[in-house]
Nucleic acid binder design. Structure first.
Lengths: 126, 126
DNA sequence: TATCTTCTGCTACAGATGTAACACATGGGC
DNA sequence: GCCCATGTGTTACATCTGTAGCAGAAGATA
């Protein structure tokens, strides 16, 4: 499932706060995006059409919840990035990151954590 | 600079083989995409309009070369991914990768390489 | 030079995306 | 029960993207 930029913004709120109304989402992104209520509504409706969100009505208000998990969406996004820009492989991406990107200390910590995890898994697998 | 999927396919060829004609590109992607000559031409023209490619005519044929480097494009792509899906941080991405994605041995090697590089740089910086 | 091949520039059109207005429905407060 | 605020569904429209056809220009070939 491919999400557009606007859809990611909406989904990021839905994942954190589901079930949410259109107004809830609006309040959350208003400052950042300047969207109108209508815009939010349209985006959420389209996400329902795509099967990414479910909608349930309570009184006259619709509440939205994710049908696609954040992890699923993230996996797809990474896959797309790899396919478009990195020969389809993580290796290529990681190499680029190592050579070209500046990592913050926080990022470095995350990386260390990642290694621990990988190591652990390798150990328990063998 | 944001590239679409079709544009990535074209650019991946241009970066490897510049300067290229539309036909060169076509021959390279034809099997994979089934594009017609016209389609390739349109994509290349649009990339020129966007300032991503330069065009030079020799005889009656146009040859295209990148104005945007692959690294630049990759950086943008990564940035977009991070902003959309990972709180804008590498840390978040790497954490996801560690927890959720299966890495091949090759990927693991690339990762090790990445660590060596990072380590080296840290060492020479301190 | 007449013709064939190939390239260019222009035009087209459907679907996705960003953004929003508007008319109408309705639940909640008075 | 009536009105208002808020929500809904519908429609709109510009831009971007995917995909391609066509007419005319210009090398290439005989």
């Amino acid at each position: 499932m491919k999400l557009s930029e606007a859809e990611w913004k909406a989904m990021n709120i839905v994942w954190r706060k589901a079930p949410v109304s259109a107004r809830d989402v609006l309040e959350d992104v208003e400052c950042e995006t300047g969207w109108s209520y209508s815009t939010v509504k349209t985006i959420l409706t389209r996400l329902c059409d795509k099967g990414v969100l479910s909608m349930r009505k309570r009184a006259n208000t619709s509440y939205f919840a994710p049908k696609l998990s954040e992890n699923q969406a993230r996996k797809s996004a990474i896959r797309n990035l790899l396919d478009n820009a990195f020969d389809g492989t993580f290796g290529s991406l990681l190499q680029h990151v190592a050579k070209e990107e500046k990592l913050s200390n926080k990022d470095r910590d995350a990386l260390a954590e990642m290694l621990r995890e990988l190591d652990e898994r390798k150990r328990s697998a063998s």
